[in-house]
Amino acid sequence: MVARTGAEGTDTMSQVASPVLEGPSAITLDKVNKWYGTLHVLRDISMTVAARERVVVCGPSGSGKSTMIRCINRLEIHQEGRIIVDGTELTDDLRSLDTIRREVGMVFQSFNLFPHLTILENCTLAPIWVRKMPKAEAEELAMSYLSRVKIPEQARKYPGQLSGGQQQRVAIARALCMKPKIMLFDEPTSALDPEMIKEVLDTMIELAESGMTMVCVTHEMGFARQVAHRVVFMDRGEIVESGSPKRMFEDPQTDRLKLFLSQILRGH
């Protein structure tokens, strides 16, 4: 498949039908393998994400898509292959890890806001401690991002006082406060009540329009259609097929993707 042709980003990208992005690669995965004990969860994953590209990763549960995205900022450790993020290879070296985590923001399925801190403190924590930003400046920055996700008036509240959708938007603002070059989303809407999914997706769409490099694990096919440059379909730990959303949804090549799409669409 397209994504498996090699590590060179431009090469991969040129074969994708929809909006082609040229430029340096933001993320490169080269023959990445990972095992949990004897369970082989990632098999020879090779993929390149160009700067400003938006990739949606989908697949049935247990397909390794979350594990793959978590390897990109080393919340999971891969055992074979190379992962290069923003020009830095992920190794055991702690300094390179710090560099990468500073540049990569992550949004989790379960929000993972810090319940003992206010919304504002959630957002200013990392800028103050990691970027060594003065407190006033960090608060100003946080307020600007909270305005952008449309909840500046909640800044003094605690996460427990907010709805799920609001919490997830705060989580997005918190990640953005570090001014990351890349944003990772790990099923950001899966834990939300249906009426709150839209507000989070709207925030993500707005972020996409600003030109952020995004890798998003999601089942929201409407979102994929609207913002993704490329959809990557994973199953049983490997990338089965990838291409533009239009091509993937209208003309799936593999039986596994056809089956997956039929199951997803039946559910909606």
Binding site: N73, F108, A126
Partner: peptide
């Protein structure tokens, strides 16, 4: 929950910052 530590790590906090804050 494990997510708390992961969120701290993902933000680039060091071990002691994550633990202490």
């Amino acid at each position: 929950p494990k997510g708390q530590a992961e969120a701290g790590e993902a933000l680039g906090l060091t071990y002691w910052q994550k633990t202490g804050l």
